[in-house]
């Protein structure tokens, strides 16, 4: 075993790239992960059943719910897939092995998040094509559609990784992760309109990552104000649209920063050491 390559410098970006490719391979080979990806897509297609009624001037309910469902993959995929994968890897000593070999946490978890982002992008593209073909609808502000999807995916992914601290094993992770998933989904405005909730609950919902994400994505898609108490009657464009999105984006960023901090306390070893 005498042949060795000359030492080279491999930066974190390159490491994340290599690990992300492996994560995508693993995602494809892990059948449960494929199910986790198809589940929000199926929910998104159910939005089409709402077609035919207007929820705002010129905004079809089917189109609204399908556009809003762009926020489902970041919630469902990030929570269901990542809590399951991270907990089972910890249980099987994979995390410990990676840690011992010196692979930084940013690389281990960064690659996982990149894989979720890629799959989310693919599902979002499918939903976008459906909106275009079915409703001849393209986003009014594409960047403001993409930004919350990326931010919510990263924030909820980090939250899910940190959340595994509470999961004893992969089996319990699948049950326990339903708590934040249902909380984020039911209070996102996609299960039922936030306006139908008591005011206090609706206010609380706007401090979770799902509701602001749905508000911003639908506003950016239709060029109308669905943020906060906006009901879509006000037409917005350019800076006005971004200004309306700022409070929601700040909430999502707060979740991202808090979750990134909590990831420091993730457990690498099933026997309880860090």
């Amino acid at each position: 075993m005498s042949t060795t390559d000359a030492p080279v410098r491999v930066g974190p970006a390159r490491q994340i790239q290599v690990y992300s490719r492996a994560e995508l391979t693993l995602f494809w080979r892990y059948r449960t992960a494929v199910y986790f990806a198809l589940f929000p897509l199926a929910l998104a297609m159910m939005g089409l059943l709402q077609a035919g009624t207007e929820i705002a001037p010129g905004v079809d309910a089917g189109a609204y719910f399908t556009a809003g469902s762009l926020m489902l993959p970041p919630l469902f995929l990030s929570i269901m897939h990542l809590t399951n994968v991270v907990t089972s890897r910890r249980e099987q000593f994979v995390l410990k092995r990676l840690r011992v070999s010196g692979t930084p946490a940013t690389v281990v978890f960064g690659a996982l998040i990149v894989s979720v982002l890629v799959v989310t992008a693919v599902i979002s593209l499918v939903i976008g094509v459906v909106l275009l073909r079915r409703y001849d609808l393209a986003p009014a502000d594409p960047l403001l559609v993409v930004l919350p999807i990326v931010l919510v995916t990263v924030a909820v992914s980090l939250f899910s990784i940190a959340f595994t601290r509470l999961c004893r094993n992969a089996e319990s992770a699948q049950m326990i992760c339903m708590v934040p998933l249902m909380l984020f989904y039911l209070l996102s405005g996609m299960a039922f309109p936030l306006a139908s909730l008591p005011d206090r609950l609706a206010d609380l919902a706007r401090f979770l990552p799902g509701a602001p994400g749905v508000d911003i994505v639908t506003s950016a898609y239709f060029g109308r104000d669905f943020t906060g108490a906006g009901d879509g009657t006000r037409v917005l464009a350019g800076a006005e649209l971004w200004a309306a999105a700022v409070p929601g984006l700040l909430v999502i960023l707060a979740w991202l920063v808090l979750s990134a901090f909590l990831v420091r306390f993730v457990r690498w070893d099933p026997r309880g050491t860090r």
Binding site: T4, P7, V8, V10, S101
Partner: peptide, 12 residues
């Protein structure tokens, strides 16, 4: 390869 390509020190 995953471990090898992410390390700066590699064997054949």
């Amino acid at each position: 390869e995953l471990v090898r390509r992410t390390s700066g020190r590699r064997r054949d």
